[in-house]
Amino acid sequence: MKKQNHDKVKHNVKDLFRKIWLVSVILAIVAAALIYFVKDSNLSNEPDTEIVDMPVEVDFDKIENGIHLRTGFIDAPGMIETIQNCTNCHSSKLVIQNRMNAERWKSTIKWMQETQNLWELGENETVIINYLVTNYPPKKVGRRAALTDVEWYQLKE
Rank of each mutant, 00 (worst) to 15 (best):
I26A: 14
E114I: 02
S92C: 04
F37D: 01
K156L: 10
E157G: 11
P55Q: 12
V38A: 08
D48Q: 04
M100P: 00
V150Y: 02
I35P: 01
L132I: 04
K8F: 14
K62P: 06
G142V: 00
A76C: 07
P137M: 04
L121Q: 03
E57N: 13
Y136A: 01
P138F: 01
E103K: 11
M54W: 09
L22P: 02
K10M: 14
V133D: 01
H6K: 13
I96Y: 04
T148I: 14
P47T: 07
L69A: 09
D15H: 03
K39H: 08
W111L: 14
R143Q: 05
I63S: 11
S107K: 15
Y36M: 07
L155D: 04
K2V: 06
A31P: 00
M1Q: 12
L22I: 14
S91P: 02
W152C: 01
V133W: 01
N135L: 09
E125W: 03
Q4R: 09
K62L: 15
M112T: 06
N85Q: 10
N117H: 12
E50V: 09
I51T: 11
F37Y: 14
S41G: 02
L16D: 03
I51S: 03
D59G: 04
A145G: 13
N101H: 04
Q116G: 02
D15R: 09
T148E: 14
D53V: 12
Q4S: 12
E50D: 09
V38S: 06
E125T: 05
Q4V: 08
T115I: 10
M54C: 01
T148M: 05
K14S: 08
D7S: 13
L34Y: 13
L16T: 08
F73K: 07
L27C: 15
M112H: 08
V38F: 09
M112D: 00
Q97L: 08
S44Y: 05
K106Q: 15
E64I: 12
W152Q: 03
I74D: 05
T71G: 11
E123A: 15
N117C: 06
N124K: 12
L147K: 14
E46K: 07
R18F: 02
V150D: 03
G78T: 11
Q154N: 04
